[in-house]
Write a protein that binds this DNA or RNA. Structure first.
Lengths: 298, 298
DNA sequence: CTGAAAGCGCTAACAA
DNA sequence: TTGTTAGCGCTTTCAG
């Protein structure tokens, strides 16, 4: 008859199949590092693309407590609104994950988690390699006294970056100088002050590796205040190409992260878990790339 | 019995009710202005919050063509995967919107659309007011020869900003000087060149209003190259507080947009359409606010 | 007011 | 192969 106007009712289909044909992406709005992060967008886009290409919809949920202490995530799962979940590490709680493992509910962590590291699948940026490459490059350009400025060591990615920094120095045959490792937890003023302090010392660094753009901004400000010239006297590399690395003066060389690839991987692994009922766990690290600009010698 | 473990099956519930209890947010990944935009995140968060609070899930879909020329949006609607849609203006196509209007399918536009302006509900930032306030402020601080640099006049929001600029000048009793209106479609080099050119003329502006952070960056670079001092000799205000306004030297005064409020409004209007079957159309403008930093006199 | 049963539109199992 | 039917778990209607 009028086949032209027929569209299957997905509500009935989902019901009959006992499947929602949707994957959920959990965001943790409290965690500035994920949600407000500009490049998180590219991961979302990648996840959505993989989902659509495989007949799944993408559902976005903020992790929050609902009434009767059942979280928004649990609701999603128990009411069968999603067939699988992508979770940021900050939402990995023992109670929740134990339930998931018991039920064999498919999930993948977007970022290396601290907890359940082996019992879950996860995809992360290769932070260790990122630091190592940066150090290797700085050393090859003649910088020898390389400082590392980062936020706080509670985060696993910070620990990995720090480890990569140390490895990089070791591989280059350089000594690790604890004074060059500057941890400035959540205090923007400190980035500046600490950099000024170490540059005023008797043995100032000749390069800085920074863990994010904001840190790099304050470090650069301090370098300029102390009248050092970048990149001639001091080299700089920072993690992340966004939001401001390219706009700084000089434009900063960065450790760039392919967040599209990150999202693509996560979504593909989740799909495998959902469709092939693949219970084996995968741990994937996405390589970083250096983008060289004017904050390092060439 | 073991009520403790009971969770209603939303698949069955949705099916029985003929409703997906989901709203869809369409993104246009081709349009850099929406999706890759950092502050778009806050709108998404707001929409998700309103949705959850009202028992709806949020589904994200990129606008793309599928097989048999049925778009991802149409699929969503015809297969009843969503009860309503939030659409960016760039996805407003006559064929699609006519179908929606025929079916009385609930949708709201996130941004003032060019087409179907009266036949649809939409929420936008008050771009006109934003420019007007900026001009008013600049004038009150003694700036008199105010230039406006923007991207391209195809965008309605650009037209509104330009109109606000002109209104602001009129209200201040200043003449509109067409030479001070610089349109530089999609050409980053041009921002710089055009600014240098006008600053080299016989009657250079003493203030710039810029339509986005990127433009402001290049304009400021040109101002510095021409050895003018901001804010003493030249004042600057730009639209948008992200990503770099705060990091520039000097930190820029901006026209700030409450993107959370934007998302909240859009979601609330959509909810009304869905639940109260409210067919009347609303057109809402969210006020902007000036954030004063060091690029304008005080 | 409480409890039984029909029906939503698809899928899958089964019969022809 | 093709056509028929039971059943998914809710909501809603209708009878008790």
């Amino acid at each position: 008859m009028e086949e032209l106007h027929y569209h299957p009712n997905s509500l009935a289909r989902n019901f009959a199949n006992g499947s929602s044909y949707a994957m959920g992406l959990v965001i943790d709005a409290k965690d500035e590092n994920t949600f407000s992060n500009a490049f998180f967008n590219r991961s979302v886009f990648a996840i959505e693309t993989v989902a659509q290409n495989n007949g799944y919809n993408l559902l976005i949920v903020n992790d929050r407590d609902g009434i009767d202490s059942i979280s928004s995530i649990e609701k999603l799962v128990f009411e069968r609104k999603v067939d699988g979940l992508i979770l940021p590490p900050s939402t990995i709680k023992p109670k929740l994950i134990k339930k998931f493992l018991e039920l064999e509910f498919p999930f993948v962590v977007l970022g290396e988690p601290k907890l359940f590291k082996t019992e879950s699948s996860w995809v992360d940026v290769n932070n260790k390699q990122g630091s190592e490459n940066a150090i290797e490059h700085l050393v090859s350009k003649g910088y020898k006294r390389i400082a590392y400025v980062y936020d706080e060591k509670n985060n696993l990615f910070e620990q990995n970056r720090l480890e990569g920094y140390k490895n990089g120095l070791k591989k280059a045959g350089l000594k690790i100088n604890d004074e060059y490792i500057i941890e400035t937890p959540r205090d923007k003023e400190k980035y500046y002050e600490e950099t000024v302090k170490i540059l005023s010392g008797s043995n100032p660094p000749d390069a800085f590796l920074c863990s994010n753009n904001d840190i790099a901004f304050h470090v650069l400000k301090a370098i300029k205040a102390k009248q050092f010239i970048v990149p001639d006297q001091i080299g700089m590399i920072t993690f992340d190409n966004y939001p401001i690395a390219e706009y700084m003066d000089p434009p900063l060389s960065v450790i760039d992260v392919d967040t599209y690839a990150l999202g693509e991987q996560v979504a593909n692994i989740l799909l495998q878990k959902i469709e092939r009922n693949n219970s084996s766990n995968q741990h994937t690290l996405i390589s970083t790339k250096l983008i060289l600009r004017e904050s390092t010698n060439d």
